[in-house]
Simulated scan of single mutants.
Amino acid sequence: MLRDVISELVKFHSYLQSRTDARVKDYPLMQSPIQMTSILLAYVFLSVYVGPRLMANRKPFGLKTAMIVYNLSMVLLNAYIVYEFMMSGWGTTYTWRCDLIDTSSSPEALRMIRVAWLFYFSKYIELLDTAFFVLRKKQSQITFLHVFHHSFMPWTWWWGITLTPVGGMGSFHALVNATVHVIMYTYYGLSAAGPRFHKYLWWKKYMTAIQLTQFVLVSIHISQYYFMEKCDYQIPLWIHLIWMYGVFFFLLFSNFWVQAYIKGKRLPAADNKTKQNGSTSEAIGVVANGKHVENGNAHHCTNGKIPMGKVKEV
Results as ranks from 00 to 15, higher is better:
residue 192 A to K: 07
residue 54 L to T: 10
residue 21 D to I: 01
residue 38 S to P: 03
residue 37 T to H: 13
residue 250 F to V: 00
residue 96 W to N: 02
residue 177 N to G: 03
residue 80 Y to V: 04
residue 249 F to P: 05
residue 311 V to W: 14
residue 56 A to W: 09
residue 268 P to T: 04
residue 44 V to A: 09
residue 305 K to M: 01
residue 27 Y to P: 12
residue 166 V to N: 07
residue 279 S to T: 14
residue 252 L to T: 11
residue 87 M to P: 02
residue 7 S to M: 11
residue 149 H to Q: 00
residue 124 Y to D: 05
residue 2 L to Y: 13
residue 115 V to M: 05
residue 253 F to A: 11
residue 74 M to C: 02
residue 123 K to V: 00
residue 216 V to Q: 05
residue 247 V to H: 10
residue 258 V to R: 14
residue 174 A to T: 08
residue 184 M to Y: 04
residue 194 G to F: 01
residue 148 F to H: 09
residue 278 G to T: 05
residue 138 K to F: 05
residue 41 L to I: 08
residue 225 Y to P: 00
residue 280 T to Q: 13
residue 126 E to H: 01
residue 280 T to P: 11
residue 168 G to S: 01
residue 261 Y to R: 02
residue 19 R to F: 12
residue 19 R to I: 12
residue 244 M to G: 15
residue 187 Y to L: 04
residue 144 F to L: 03
residue 245 Y to M: 12
residue 133 F to E: 04
residue 212 L to R: 03
residue 149 H to C: 04
residue 135 L to N: 01
residue 21 D to L: 11
residue 237 L to D: 11
residue 225 Y to E: 02
residue 226 Y to G: 12
residue 30 M to H: 11
residue 251 L to M: 13
residue 12 F to L: 15
residue 195 P to E: 05
residue 120 Y to G: 03
residue 60 P to W: 02
residue 282 E to M: 10
residue 131 A to R: 03
residue 201 L to N: 08
residue 259 Q to S: 13
residue 113 I to H: 01
residue 112 M to Q: 06
residue 125 I to L: 00
residue 239 I to R: 08
residue 207 M to D: 07
residue 262 I to L: 11
residue 265 K to H: 15
residue 23 R to Q: 07
residue 70 Y to C: 01
residue 213 T to M: 03
residue 256 F to C: 12
residue 219 S to F: 03
residue 200 Y to G: 06
residue 133 F to N: 08
residue 260 A to C: 14
residue 240 H to Q: 12
residue 3 R to A: 10
residue 19 R to T: 15
residue 258 V to Y: 14
residue 225 Y to T: 03
residue 170 G to K: 05
residue 266 R to M: 09
residue 226 Y to T: 03
residue 12 F to Y: 12
residue 97 R to K: 12
residue 68 I to E: 11
residue 44 V to K: 04
residue 304 G to Q: 04
residue 302 T to A: 07
residue 143 T to F: 02
residue 105 S to A: 02
residue 5 V to Q: 10
residue 255 N to T: 14
residue 32 S to C: 03
residue 190 L to C: 13
residue 37 T to D: 14
residue 166 V to K: 08
residue 125 I to Q: 02
residue 18 S to C: 10
residue 108 E to S: 12
residue 268 P to Q: 06
residue 97 R to W: 04
residue 15 Y to D: 14
residue 8 E to L: 15
residue 97 R to F: 07
residue 272 N to E: 15
residue 205 K to F: 09
residue 18 S to R: 14
residue 16 L to N: 13
residue 14 S to F: 13
residue 164 T to N: 11
residue 314 V to A: 07
residue 104 S to R: 06
residue 56 A to S: 14
residue 34 I to W: 13
residue 277 N to T: 15
residue 7 S to E: 14
residue 245 Y to V: 08
residue 176 V to Q: 00
residue 304 G to P: 01
residue 33 P to T: 12
residue 15 Y to P: 10
residue 284 I to F: 10
residue 53 R to D: 04
residue 51 G to D: 00
residue 67 M to R: 01
residue 160 G to Q: 10
residue 83 Y to K: 06
residue 311 V to G: 10
residue 194 G to P: 02
residue 266 R to A: 08
residue 234 Q to Y: 13
residue 221 H to Q: 14
residue 299 H to V: 14
residue 208 T to F: 00
residue 288 A to N: 07
residue 119 F to R: 06
